[in-house]
Design a binder for these strands. Structure first.
Lengths: 324, 324
DNA sequence: CTGTTAGCGCCTTCAT
DNA sequence: ATGAAGGCGCTAACAG
C-alpha cells in the first residue's frame, strides 16, 4: 500500500494525496475521499521514502557509557520521553567508554542520517581528538550533557558537580564535622571534579583531606569501610562520589556499630532513588539528571526547529534526609 | 556526496560502484579506483536510500516497561550489544506499561519499517487484545521474552520464574526453615507466577503461606519489615520477589537485630549485581536475564537470516551467597 | 564484468 | 486547487 494505491482508489493524483498528508489545503470533497481510503487500509506513509526526500527520518541518538548504570538510565529515559512526545525515535548507544566503539556507533548513525545526537557525560570529549570524526558531524545538531565538542552545531548543558560536592562538604563542616573522608569512584574527569570540590572545601576551612578510591560500584563501599576500619581512620563524616557507594558505606559502618547520622554522617551523590534504600535514608547531592536530560532534549528540539539556543549550567542541590 | 559523484570521479558507472559496495566481483583495477575516491571523501552510502530499495534499514526495536528498572536495563543492554555487533541499530521504547503508549510506539516503528521487535516481559501479551495492531505486525519478525503474540512470525524465549522460586523455597525448607514469608512486588502475571511457585512449595511440605505485598521497589522492603515486626510475625526466612526488596529487608531486619543467614534467611530474585550490595551478600534466584536477552537477539538474527528457530525455556538457578 | 535503465515511495516545482 | 514530471540515492534486472 503506497501513495499511488491511495491516489488511484480515491480518484485523485498522488500529489493531492501528498498534500493531504502534509496538511496543505485541498478541496474538502477530495479530502474526504482520500481520508476514507486511508482509513480503510490503515495506510501510513513510509518514513524511509519521506526521509530520502526530506533528509529526516525523525531519529535521534543518545550516546551513553552504559545504560545499566542508573544515572545513565535516568538520562536516557528522560530524553526518550521528551523526544518521543514529539514523534522522534530514540536510538541508545552503549559505548562502554570505548573510543573505537563510540566512533563505530557514530558512523552507523551518520549512515541513517540521524537528526541529532545527545552525548551524556564528559567522557565523550575524547572525540575532540578525532578531527575526521568531528568533520563528519560538523553540522549535525549535537547536545552535550556535561561536555563539549568542537563542531559547528554543538550546544551544552552543564551541571556544577564540583560546587555540589563543595556545598555538601561545607554543610558537614558547618554542622561541626571535622574529619571528613571522601570516597572516589574511578577517576573520570567528572569524578575528579567532584573530588576537587571536596578538597577545596576542606582547604578553605584548614582541614586535611583523606581520600579513598574504588573501582567497584557495588562492593566498593564495603571494601572502603574495611580499609577505614583497618586504618583506624578517625572520622566523623564520609562524602561519597556515588549514591551506591554511600549505600554500602552506610550498611558497612552500621555493621561496625557506627550510628549513622550521629556518630558519623554519610552523604551520597546523585539524588537517585537509592537514597530511599538506605537505613537511615540518605542525604545526597542531587545533580539533576532528570532536569538536565530534559533540557538537553528540549535544546535539541529547539535546534531542529532552527531556534537559537544558549548553553546552560545547572546547580546541584543538597537533599537532606537522615544520614547527614 | 552520493554514488553518482563517486562513479563520475572514478570514471565508472554507478552500478559498478554499487557492486563494489556490495562486495560483488569487479575488475581489480576499477575496484582500486573506486576505493580511492571513496576513501578520499569518506563516502558512506545512505542507509535511507538503501532501505527504500531493500526494505531494511537494519533497525530493531526493544520494547520495555522502563529502562530505569535494572532488570530491563540489563536486557536492553545485552540486546543492544548483540545486535549492534551485527550492524543493527537498536531503538528502545519505554512504554511505562501503558497500552496506548505501546501502540503508539509500534505505529512509529512500522513507519520506519523496523526489521524486527523484541518485547521484554509478559506485560506485552495485552497486545493480543488488539487485532488491528496484530495485523499491522503480522509478518514482522518478533521475539517475546517471557510472552507471546498471536502473529505469523512471533517466537518466544521463556524463563521458568515459578520453578525458580519453588526451588529456592524448597532449598530453604530442606535447610530446616519452617516459617517462610514471601514478599511480592506488584501483581503482574510474572510476579503472580513467582508467588505461586512459593505457595506450591509450601503446600508440598504442608506449610502455611504468609504473603506481604508492596508497590514500592525501594522502600517497600523496609515497610514490609515494619509490618512484620508490628505483627510479631514468627518467621525464619523471607523470600523476596525482587533483589531490591531483599536488600531493604536484609538492612531492616539487621537493624532489628536479626542475624541474617542464621536467625533468619533472606533470598532475593534476579541475580542482579545488587546481590553484592547487601551485608551479608545476598542469595538470589538468577532468572538469567542476560542469557535470555542474548538468546532473544540471536533468535531475531536467525529469523532475519531466514533460519528456522524454536521457542526455548530457560531454567532459573539459585545463586547461594551468605544471606541464606 | 560493465553500463543502462527502471523502479523503491514520497515530495516538490511547474504548468494547468 | 490540481496533476504531471523530475528527483532524493540506491539496487537489481537486463543488455552488451
Amino acid at each position: 500500500m503506497n501513495i499511488y494505491d491511495i491516489a488511484k482508489e480515491a480518484g485523485v493524483s498522488i500529489s493531492t494525496v501528498s498534500k493531504y498528508l502534509n496538511n496543505k489545503s485541498i478541496r474538502p470533497e477530495l479530502k474526504e475521499r482520500i481520508e476514507y481510503v486511508i482509513n480503510k487500509y490503515d495506510y501510513v506513509p513510509s518514513a524511509v521514502a519521506q526521509g530520502l526526500v526530506s533528509k529526516s527520518m525523525k531519529i535521534v541518538a543518545v550516546m551513553v557509557v552504559d545504560i545499566q548504570i542508573s544515572h545513565y538510565a535516568a538520562a536516557a529515559y528522560a530524553i526518550d520521553k521528551t523526544l518521543s512526545a514529539f514523534g522522534y525515535r530514540v536510538i541508545i548507544c552503549n559505548t562502554l567508554g570505548d573510543e573505537k566503539n563510540s566512533i563505530r556507533y557514530i558512523d552507523s548513525l551518520i549512515k541513517i542520517n540521524v537528526d541529532g545526537i545527545i552525548f551524556i557525560g564528559s567522557i565523550f570529549n575524547f572525540l575532540n581528538k578525532y578531527e575526521k570524526v568531528l568533520k563528519k558531524i560538523d553540522d549535525l545538531p549535537i547536545i552535550c550533557n556535561n561536555g563539549h565538542l568542537d563542531t559547528n552545531n554543538c550546544h551544552s548543558v552543564y551541571v556544577d558537580d564540583k560546587m555540589g560536592v563543595y556545598n555538601a562538604v561545607e554543610y558537614l563542616i558547618k554542622k561541626g564535622r571535622q574529619k571528613i573522608v571522601y570516597v572516589q569512584y574511578l577517576s573520570t574527569s567528572s569524578s575528579n571534579l567532584k573530588c576537587s570540590g571536596y578538597k577545596e572545601a576542606l582547604e578553605k576551612y584548614g582541614l586535611k583531606p583523606v581520600i579513598y578510591h574504588t573501582d567497584d560500584l557495588m562492593e566498593g563501599g564495603y571494601q572502603v569501610v574495611e580499609s577505614m576500619l583497618a586504618n583506624k581512620e578517625e572520622m566523623d563524616a564520609v562524602m561519597c562520589g556515588e549514591d551506591l557507594l554511600a549505600l554500602a558505606c552506610i550498611s558497612g559502618l552500621s555493621a561496625a556499630n557506627y550510628k549513622i547520622g550521629s556518630d558519623i554522617d554519610v552523604i551520597g551523590f546523585n539524588g537517585s532513588s537509592f537514597t530511599n534504600l538506605s537505613n537511615p535514608r540518605m542525604t545526597s547531592v542531587d545533580n539533576k539528571i532528570e532536569e538536565t536530560s530534559i533540557k538537553s532534549a528540549q535544546m535539541l528540539l529547539d535546534v531542529l526547529k532552527g531556534k537559537k539556543v544558549e548553553d546552560v549550567t545547572f546547580p546541584c542541590s543538597l537533599i537532606i534526609k537522615k544520614s547527614a
